[in-house]
């Protein structure tokens, strides 16, 4: 077996509080060390940062830092496949958010690129300068990945549901 055949595909995972230093340094690794075309690496990087910030902002499970700010707790996995990369996160959400989030993801998957760009613009205009959430990041994930979002909801405890979402970034 040649060395190439023995080489394993790329796999990276993390579980814990989604601190920006951790997210950023992991993301930079894709840009600086993967051997794919720049288009693939930058798409993976952007999807990864957006999908991780979704956890940091919205996870129902929070970690309080020494500066009193809280970070969302969750898990990310980035896994290389033959034709691309799967970028996934899991985090707790409150049960009452499930239906709204599910419909939102459904709508994103039904929308084409132009519709997504228009939706992003509309929501961006409507959002305030201080609180810029509104799940606009999920639109960016769909736009940058150019593939359907996969998502499901699993009951994790009496109080919370685990929201699992993944995006596929095709190799150029």
């Amino acid at each position: 077996m040649s060395k190439e055949q023995k080489d394993k595909r790329f796999y990276l995972s993390f579980e814990g509080p989604f601190n920006m230093r951790i997210i950023s340094s992991s993301g930079r690794y894709f840009i600086e060390n993967l051997s794919d075309a720049y288009e693939t690496r930058i798409s993976l990087y952007r999807v990864f940062i957006e999908i991780c910030q979704n956890v940091a902002l919205y996870s129902a499970e929070r970690f309080r830092q020494s500066n009193n700010n809280t970070l969302g707790i969750g898990r990310f996995v980035v896994e290389e496949k033959e034709d691309g990369y799967v970028c996934s996160t899991s985090n707790a959400i409150q049960p009452e958010h499930r239906e709204k989030l599910c419909k939102y993801c459904e709508n994103l998957n039904k929308s084409n690129a132009d519709e997504l760009i228009n939706l992003k613009s509309t929501l961006r205009h409507q959002s305030s300068l201080v609180a810029t959430g509104a799940h606009i990041g999920l639109i960016s994930i769909k736009l940058y990945s150019k593939n359907q979002l996969k998502y499901d909801f699993l009951k994790s405890s009496d109080d919370d549901i685990s929201f699992n979402i993944s995006a596929f970034i095709s190799k150029s």
Binding site: I42, Y45, I49, E50, K120, R124, H125, T132, S140
Partner: peptide
Amino acid sequence: LTYFNTSSSRMILE
């Protein structure tokens, strides 16, 4: 800029 997230894009828009 080579990348900006959605929150930053709101500030750039401003």
